[in-house]
Amino acid sequence: METPFTNAILDVQHSQITSPVKTPLDAHYAIVDTAVSTVFWSVLLIIALCVVMQPLWPIPQAGRDIAINIIIGISAVVTLIVVFGYFAEKAKGYCVREQDITLFKGLIFNKIITQPICRIQHIEVKRGPIDRKVGLAKLHVFSAGDISQTFEIPGLALETANSIRNEILAHKEMQHHG
């Protein structure tokens, strides 16, 4: 099974390629994202607490205790997820090279996803209401094949996102495909 691998792939041109280097996302992004998820979960948990504690249709004391314990448990897990999410978002980064665009992500599993520009089918700059408020944007890149795995760079300053998009659209391979 174990055969010696000989494969002359290192030619002159190849050695000129530099590996992608991580550029961090916008400094505000991880905080904004964490704030959004904190607010979302807090609202959800407060609603749950209100439902349990409301005096109109009182729940028996034993049931109330169990429900409150469950809510506390969920809060603990959610806190962990939110904290983890903060560091995970902070660890994300990107790199635009002449010929490709790379997304870095992962805290436990470090992933480097590289999308050659000549394979991009179309590209979108997306901004939700919160993104608009804080001047951020997401860059969504589409290629053929596996739809489940989307290539999306979040947390870019709007100007950065637009200039990356323009850079990609101006690439000769993109013009070639129309």
Binding site: F109, I113, T114, Q115, P116, R119, S143, A144, G145, D146
Partner: peptide, 28 residues
């Protein structure tokens, strides 16, 4: 090939290992 992913966890890095995921039009 449409795109390619290079991934490595902490333990994999310690053992100098890595995984590759290759995306084609037909799947990954």
């Amino acid at each position: 090939i449409q795109k390619i992913t290079f991934s490595q966890s902490y333990f994999m890095k310690k053992n100098q290992l890595a995984s590759l995921k290759i995306y084609l039009g037909s799947g990954s």
